[in-house]
Amino acid sequence: MVTLTIDGKEVTVPQGTTILEAAKSVDIRIPTLCYHERLNPIGSCRMCVVEIDGFGHPMAACTTPVEDGIEVTTNSDRLTRIRQDSLKLILVNHPLDCPICDKGGECLLQDLVYEHGIDKVEYTAAKVDRDSLYATPLIRYWPDRCIMCLRCVTACQEIKGIGAISIEGDGYGAQVVAVDPEICQSCGECLQVCPTGALTADLSRYRGRTWLIDRVPTTCTYCGCGCQLELNVQNNQVIAVTTKDGVGVNQGSLCVKGRFGYEFINSDDRLKTPMIKQNGEFQEASWDEALSLVAEKFSAIKAEHGGGAIGGLTSARCSNEENYLFQKFMRAAIGTNNVDHCARL
């Protein structure tokens, strides 16, 4: 264990803990922007700089491991100046389109600019025209809103192990590009970690303000993994899917289906009741009617041909328990061993 002081408060943490984590453990908040709990520290925003007594250079709390006996200061005029400069520089040519930004209201940049009271930016630089070199039909990239915190690039590499996006160019011209568009799966991990509105879900564009949305926690139905997600609901319409970091087996990650495959919920074509074919046409029916009909037909087949004449195919979208019950039902009630599952095919 290592003991240090942060803003005069003594902290004891395991070796290898970063200053940022140590501060957090005693409820000292150091502002961060690029830092994300699920990613290795990136160190691009320099918001979390702290001073360490005896060392001339301020250091990023997110990337600096603690040392025994160090005295850390998280707030000073110098640190405030650096943090303000970092934010001001980000605002150079950053579009002030918050009113139509889907992230408005839960944008980390917005919050930090507000917190640091930045009311004017005295720095200027010629705007660089940036093409949206990274986009899929589901993910929209707004290059001018991008602050290049590199969370997206890091998440694509570290969480998904894909590495479809990276940085190209140098200096002010550097930007996020899809270096390998072929391997991008549109999983949306990048937009999940984006702290600003630089990466947004294109299906959800302009469909609801963040502060008017109800977020309903639920389990994804696409497969048996049981990923936890939140349906973003406005006026009884699902307009987006989001996740909470660290929640559920998926810890906030989703695949392309879980994150973007929600339009069926409000689809006009969606079946909401069982249908029974009568005189060559499907007619709406109640569950009792439908189940009785199925039971009747199964019983007849079983009586005439035996249980083996019936086979059951279940789905990867069912949970383990549901699949278990299904095979139990087929074997015990129907009397067949003809049970299979689509994921095996």
Partner: peptide, 16 residues
């Protein structure tokens, strides 16, 4: 020109 663009201050600050 040689700034890698991976931190805010250097990327934009040196441009300014």
């Amino acid at each position: 020109e040689k700034s890698c663009g991976k931190c805010f201050l250097c990327r934009i600050g040196t441009r300014v």
